[in-house]
Nucleic acid binder design. Structure first.
Lengths: 128, 128
DNA sequence: GTACGTGCAAAGGTTTTGCATTACA
DNA sequence: TGTAATGCAAAACCTTTGCACGTAC
């Protein structure tokens, strides 16, 4: 992980990637992002996609999600929220709601809890 | 995914893998399992580890976890539970408690919710 | 005996890296 | 101008697969 937190050097490629991510709720993978921007930048490389994602991650502007066992997915929405995943088609929707869950001390193994993320599993309207 | 659900053919390799997993709360990766059993079976291969994990998964005897973005991890504890992950050293401990979370209809995008898994993030005693 | 598991090696998919070139600030 | 990003190719990882051989049942 790139630990830089200073100013982002803006390049046309980065602008294209950030434009694609801005407001995007599809939780794209690096490959999705690559496909989306390589139309406009035929020379776009994965190195640039991952480099930009690292830069955004280390600045807290993108979250790396673990909701898909096959590949990493990225979420430009950094407001704390949860995800509801269709177990059949893998569609993912956001759940914007804070659930206050207090874990009793006896269960924490002396960890200090600083956050949480809930994965809900279900069937989307199409797959039901 | 192997869809078989019948009887498991027991081989010495499978017994060794299942022995290693039984009661194991370290959430091992395929590589961890391979390392653990290849001492006793020098000819052990990843094909056998993954083959056995598929067989166990399809029979509901092991869960594939997505708590680690770098690799799949496996959990022989199939009782519904949650995980508390140290953001620094990545240690994972189980949280055995059922939290009843009702998602309001307006937020479900018409999904039918059938399960959930909570990832708690925190700092373990060592990393605090 | 036969269907299925094993083990090796090769391949597939995702992510990372080295390095020369380019370009933002 | 100097530092950092780009782009290409190769490599590193994790996981899957093909196939000949072996073994549990």
């Amino acid at each position: 992980m790139n630990e830089k937190t200073g100013k982002l050097k803006m390049t046309p490629q980065r602008i294209a990637i950030m434009d694609y991510l801005d407001g995007n709720t599809s939780h794209p993978s690096a490959d999705d992002i690559f496909k989306a921007v390589s139309g406009r930048f035929p020379t776009m490389s994965f190195a640039t996609v991952y480099n930009t994602l690292d830069a955004l991650k280390s600045r807290g502007r993108v979250l790396e999600l673990t909701i898909d066992p096959e590949r990493k997915r990225y979420d430009p929405n950094t407001v704390s929220h949860h995800h509801l995943i269709c177990v059949t088609c893998k569609k993912v929707v956001d759940i914007h709601k804070d659930y206050d869950i207090q874990v009793e001390k006896a269960l924490t193994s002396d960890f200090e809890i600083i956050g949480k993320h809930i994965e809900f599993y279900g069937l989307c309207p199409v797959c039901q």
